[in-house]
Nucleic acid binder design. Structure first.
Ligand SMILES: [Mn+2]
Ligand SMILES: [Mn+2]
Ligand SMILES: [Zn+2]
Ligand SMILES: [Zn+2]
Lengths: 138, 138
DNA sequence: AATAAGTTTGTAATCATTACAAGTTAGCAA
DNA sequence: TTGCTAACTTGTAATGATTACAAACTTATT
């Protein structure tokens, strides 16, 4: 999938965030590598192309992109923050054997609970864990 | 609700974990304060009664209780691990205004995703965020 | 080109969590 | 009851992720 730069620049402009060279690289990485990467995975890879890139910039860029709503944070594991360029609602499954994170489609609006009738829900995260088919076969 | 000590001791024994004085205190705190507390909240409170208690012991105790399946970890926020003595499946809602975490009932097994037909699911976490009724009224 | 606002960098600081070694306690068996 | 051993607790040090900050740099606008 190709990034729509005009669209993205517009989104960012609303929040006085510039689409700098490095931020674009981070976006490209997320777009080309749909693996819900950690900061380190992004940094190590991009640093090969951009030797002057600092890890702080990766953090700054990701925070700016999250603020602009272009990227979503995943806290499926408590010791590693991951990032997802797909912001449409979907569920995440982490394999406890190989560590891979899978997307799955799920109708989140069907998750109604009477207990929440009077609550304003802004965000829904669904995290499952278990064993993926590849690892079951071993 | 009263803790069933025999039951708990048996659970722990299976894993060679003793129900020591401090662990029992941590369990009691979780049982009496259904607020999904952080390590710090537990430590600060218990330290008043047990001045020699160290924070490491709170971590050790919680890890042991989680290993034994008596306590569940919540990673609803990436910068603070929380703990729940209620291990039955239920959802969690965090109010972005007051920070309070609410339980809600939800039938997780009734929501299947075809994408996960071949996956073995061990754990399901549902985290919602938004504004709670108390904060909406302000 | 001048300007101002936003960005990047490197380093230092912070915060949560774990590692470790030494001393203490609990549970079991003699 | 006593002693033994494994498990537990403690304090401190180490680790790892993330943020703070100031100086240098870049970008967009005039
Ligand atoms: Mn995803
Ligand atoms: Mn709960
Ligand atoms: Zn797997
Ligand atoms: Zn609230």
């Amino acid at each position: 999938m190709k990034l729509n730069l005009e669209e993205i620049t517009k989104e960012l402009k609303n929040k006085n965030i510039r689409l700098s060279h490095h931020r674009l690289k981070v976006l490209e990485f997320l777009n080309d590598n749909r693996i819900h990467p950690t900061v380190d995975q992004i940094y190590i890879q991009l640093h090969k192309e951009l030797p002057t890139l600092s890890k702080t910039t990766v953090y700054n860029s990701l925070n700016a992109l999250v603020d602009a709503g272009l990227v979503k944070v995943l806290t499926i594991e408590d010791n590693e923050t991951r990032y997802d360029i797909v912001t449409d609602n979907h569920g995440h499954f982490k394999c406890e054997s190989c560590g891979k994170i899978y997307d799955f489609e799920i109708n989140l609006s069907s998750f109604q609970s009477k207990d929440l009738d009077d609550f304003k829900i802004n965000n829904r995260d669904i995290y499952f864990k278990g064993i993926c088919p590849d690892c079951i076969q071993q």
